[in-house]
């Protein structure tokens, strides 16, 4: 405090803003994290059965893939608005929209993971007397984990970014701080909330990378080359943003 106040001067960087509004920032971050986490978890829970349905043949695959791709085409602001009559101004509205978006990425990756399970492994498990349920839980899903977790990483990062649009119904985590700050031209608040958003996405991505390594240690041998290719997005229609 050298006689100059960055809040009064409306500077881009303002540590005093961060300290004086730490409570508000923490609350928004917590909301952001739980909306993202709940959305991705529900998305995952929905996409596994959808992927199982889709692999039963073209008759199911075409509508499942077609519908999830179609959902991705709809701009997020329109998606949230279309859900308004059903959910009102609630976090459920934002979560539902985010779940629908996450399906595009997750269903494709779960399907890719399941398709990558070698047929002779399935044969061997069946020969050992594994029923369809046990085969899925103990053989197929564990082997599908690398692709599945790669999908979870992509879905999480894009969900963190998309959550901000939820501020249109007042449930946008850090987006809730950005919206009013634009109207009042409050630079420090816009920048701090934006930076926190990107940091959140990076931290989530790194944490999931750690989870991925812990859960699938067998993929590490060929990781150097794999990582380069698996990070290239399966040409999914771009972020629905």
């Amino acid at each position: 405090m050298d006689g100059r106040n960055c809040l009064v001067d409306n500077d881009w960087f303002c540590w005093e803003y961060v300290t004086s509004r730490s409570r508000e920032l923490a609350d928004a971050t917590v909301q952001h994290v739980w909306i993202t986490a709940v959305s991705v978890l529900i998305g995952l829970a929905v996409s596994v059965p959808l992927a199982l349905l889709a692999r039963r043949g073209r008759r199911w695959a075409a509508p499942v893939l077609g519908l999830t791709t179609l959902l991705y085409t709809i701009p997020s602001l329109a998606m949230f608005s279309l859900l308004l009559p059903f959910f009102g101004l609630s976090a459920a509205l934002v979560v539902t929209g985010l779940v629908l978006y996450s399906l595009t990425i997750l269903v494709r990756n779960v399907m890719a993971g399941l398709a990558a399970v070698p047929e002779d492994v399935r044969e061997a498990a069946r020969g050992m007397g594994y029923g369809p349920g046990r085969l899925l839980w103990q053989v197929e899903l564990p082997l599908a984990l690398p692709a599945l977790l790669a999908g979870v990483r992509i879905a999480t990062v894009s969900t963190v970014a998309l959550t901000t649009v939820g501020s249109i119904v007042g449930k946008g985590g850090l987006g809730n701080l950005i919206a009013p700050a634009v109207n009042s031209s409050f630079k420090a608040q816009v920048l701090t909330a934006s930076v926190l958003c990107v940091l959140l996405a990076l931290v989530a991505d790194l944490l999931l990378l750690g989870v991925q390594r812990l859960l699938t240690p067998w993929t590490r041998a060929g990781r150097a080359r794999k990582a380069a290719t698996s990070d290239v997005p399966v040409p999914v229609p771009a972020e629905g943003a």
Binding site: S158, A161, L162, T164, S167, S185, K187, A201
Partner: peptide
């Protein structure tokens, strides 16, 4: 993918 569209637009507008 990690950068929110809304945040970038907001930064431009301030």
């Amino acid at each position: 993918r990690a950068v929110p569209v809304f945040a970038v637009l907001a930064l431009f507008m301030v």
